[in-house]
Design a protein around this nucleic acid. Sequence first.
DNA 1: TTTTATTGTTAGGTAAATCTAAAAATAATT
DNA 2: AATTATTTTTAGATTTACCTAACAATAAAA
Lengths: 221, 221
Amino acid sequence: MSTTSYSEENYLKVIYHLSQKSSGAVQTNTIAENIGTKPASVTDMLKKLADKRLIDYVKYQGVSLTEKGQLTAIGIVRKHRLWEVFLVDKLKLKWDEVHEIAEELEHINSDLLVERLDEYLGRPKTDPHGDSIPDKDGKFHAVNLTKLNELSAGNTGMIVGVSEHSSAYLKHLEKLGLTLGKEIQVVEVVEFDGSVELILEDKKVNISRDVAKHILVNEEF
Amino acid sequence: MSTTSYSEENYLKVIYHLSQKSSGAVQTNTIAENIGTKPASVTDMLKKLADKRLIDYVKYQGVSLTEKGQLTAIGIVRKHRLWEVFLVDKLKLKWDEVHEIAEELEHINSDLLVERLDEYLGRPKTDPHGDSIPDKDGKFHAVNLTKLNELSAGNTGMIVGVSEHSSAYLKHLEKLGLTLGKEIQVVEVVEFDGSVELILEDKKVNISRDVAKHILVNEEF
DNA sequence: TTTTATTGTTAGGTAAATCTAAAAATAATT
DNA sequence: AATTATTTTTAGATTTACCTAACAATAAAA
Ligand SMILES: [Mn+2]
Ligand SMILES: [Mn+2]
Ligand SMILES: [Mn+2]
Ligand SMILES: [Mn+2]
């Protein structure tokens, strides 16, 4: 089992996330945008990852992860999310402060470390943004999420995740009081602009469609 | 304040440790041995570190850290030791299992992270091997240590550190029961081979000079 | 179905960190 | 002081992960 560099791991993780987001092969340019490199650099790396049997790559046709590539990627995602839990639960960082740091921590390779960290944190199932943490074998335990903007008037739910992790977005939610675990009820989804009017802790809050669509709720009824 | 790469940081740290160990300039070959590279590579790096004003370097005359270089090095030592405390105290790794991992963790750059970690750990003054942890400003709080082999018959002390960190050595001490915090009393320092006969928890233990000289005790009387 | 636009690849280069082999400086021994 | 040994540096390569500019393939539009 050859070793993977930080850079290779970042590529695998991005390819993994992009494959989740939409079906079919992942495109070179999309990877470049997400990693912050040029397409030419991506092509170089894709060849290397293909040589290592971490991805299936057909020139001009995009890529997908092999079994081995996917397991590697999920392992990194697991570490990223466990470290985020540590940073928020134990070190009391805010949910918008942890991503960058976890981006580094996720590359530290030690099965013993990850196992003990998981145990120490109480084997959490989700990270501070509500994302599911895969277990040691790379299995996710299904959770059913609905986007807030897809609820109908009258529906109630608890905020269990967000699908956008930028600091700007998270800080905005924080200010609105829309944090994980909060109960909300939809008053109206405005047809004109898609904005959502909701009740949060007995107060009315109005959020734009763009804000609403990245809030994931556990629909209650 | 330009950024330092992992590799540069490892060099700075090694130069720092070597300057502590013996006075005078640190030699190229010694650095190479300690980092595990060839002297030619060290020369390359020394030029770079000198350009960045992190070391004073005169061709053929060895190097020493500048103020800036020393502060950087101490910052890395601080992180290394804090993470070791975390790994042992919180994650329950053994003292011979943490060095490699801390070698990676020490490079993660976030003042907020280090501050919170320090706070979370209760601002420890020493790491799991008894080494002093510098404070945020790079200051060490002096502790007076004596090498076990320098004690005289009848002297008593508490084990507060070790000056050798190899897994083999630490495992050996563990087996003998010679771990941090243990009280010992010297029965005799054998003149013939320098081995030390001591009492540990009411039992007699004999250790070689080589083992004894890396055990640091807080002499009691 | 050409033409145009988009997407992806190749060719050739750079910077960081390493290496080997050869040369130069310094230190230690006759 | 001359010779030998050790230490250090230089010269020239290599590998990884990038880049720009030019070209090729595919997709979209006319
Ligand atoms: Mn990363
Ligand atoms: Mn997250
Ligand atoms: Mn290190
Ligand atoms: Mn230590």
